[in-house]
C-alpha cells in the first residue's frame, strides 16, 4: 500500500491560506458553497470558515424531492457546527417543470440537470452576495471525470481539487468534520440509493492508490501491473481519466488568429490582482 497520508497541519494551513489569498486579492471576502452533507463540501466549508470567518461563508442547501433526508440533516449539522450562514432552496419545481416536457429522460440526464441547476443557483447567489463560488470536487473525481461538467465541477476556486478522496477524509477528520459525515458512503445523491463506489465499480481507497502512482508518480500501466494491480482495473481507471480529459479543459476553440485563448494568449489567472 502506498502511503497517502498527509501532514494535516501544514496542508490545512496551505488550503486556508489559499482561500484567504485568492478570494481577497480578487476583491471579495465572501464565498458561497453548495452543501450536500458529504465530506467534500463539508471540508470546503470548514476551510472557508477558518479562512474568512463563519460570517463570510454561505452554505447553500439545494435538495431535490428524492434527495436523502440525511443529506440535508448532515449539511445542517455542518452549518450549526461552523455557525456559517445558510440558505435552503428546493430545486424540485424547476427540475420537474423541465422534465415534464421530457418524461423519457433517464436518471443520468436528470442527475446532470440537477447538478447544473445547483450551479446556476450558486452563481446567482454569489452575485447577490458579492461572493465567490467555492469548489468542492476532489482530485479523485476530477481525474475520473466523475462529476457534471458545468455542474458540480464549476467554481471560482477549489481548495480540495488536488487532494485524493482518501486525503480529503484524513483532512476532514483533522479539521473536525463530524465523524458521521466522514464515515458515510459517498454519494452524489442524484437518485435514490446511488453510491459512488457502486457506480464506479471500485472503492476510493483502491482507486486512489492507482491514481496516485499513475498521476503523481507517472507510473505507466505496465509499471502498475508489475506492482500487483489488476490489469483490467488499471486499464479501466486509465480509460476514465483519458475519456474525461475534456472535462478538465476549456472548450476547444478553432484557431485562426495569432493569439488564441489558452494556446498563445497566456496570462495568469491572477492577472492584475
Amino acid at each position: 500500500m502506498t502511503d497517502l497520508s498527509l501532514n494535516a497541519d501544514i496542508v490545512r494551513e496551505v488550503l486556508v491560506g489559499f482561500i484567504e489569498d485568492e478570494v481577497t486579492k480578487a476583491g471579495f471576502y465572501r464565498v458561497v458553497v453548495g452543501l450536500s452533507g458529504g465530506v467534500d463540501s463539508s471540508l470546503s466549508a470548514y476551510l472557508a470558515a477558518e479562512a474568512l470567518g463563519p460570517n463570510n461563508v454561505w452554505g447553500i442547501l439545494m435538495p431535490y424531492k428524492t434527495s436523502s433526508p440525511e443529506s440535508v440533516e448532515h449539511a445542517r449539522l455542518v452549518v450549526d457546527r461552523l455557525k456559517i450562514n445558510a440558505m435552503q432552496i428546493d430545486i424540485t419545481p424547476q427540475i420537474d417543470a423541465y422534465f415534464d416536457c421530457f418524461p423519457e429522460a433517464d436518471h443520468v440526464r436528470r442527475g446532470n440537470k440537477m447538478a447544473r441547476e445547483r450551479m446556476t443557483i450558486l452563481f446567482d447567489q454569489s452575485a447577490a452576495l458579492h461572493a465567490l463560488v467555492l469548489g468542492t470536487s476532489n482530485k479523485t473525481e476530477l481525474m475520473l471525470g466523475y462529476g457534471t461538467l458545468y455542474g458540480d465541477m464549476a467554481s471560482a476556486i477549489n481548495p480540495i481539487g488536488d487532494l485524493f478522496k482518501t486525503q480529503v477524509r484524513h483532512l476532514a477528520r483533522h479539521v473536525g468534520v463530524p465523524e458521521v459525515i466522514v464515515q458515510k458512503k459517498p454519494s452524489a445523491d442524484l437518485w435514490v440509493g446511488q453510491t459512488d463506489e457502486e457506480e464506479l465499480g471500485f472503492t476510493y481507497e483502491q482507486v486512489d492508490q492507482a491514481l496516485y502512482l499513475m498521476i503523481d508518480k507517472r507510473y505507466e500501466i505496465a509499471n502498475l501491473v508489475a506492482c500487483g494491480f489488476d490489469e483490467r482495473f488499471v486499464r479501466g481507471v486509465f480509460a476514465k481519466v483519458q475519456a474525461s480529459q475534456y472535462k478538465r479543459r476549456l472548450p476547444l476553440i478553432a484557431k485562426v488568429s495569432h493569439r488564441t485563448i489558452d494556446r498563445d494568449f497566456r496570462y495568469p489567472r491572477d492577472w492584475g490582482i
Partner: peptide
Amino acid sequence: PGRGTPQKGIF
C-alpha cells in the same frame, strides 16, 4: 512553489 503533498513536515 510547493510541490509534493506534505506527509511529514513541509512540501
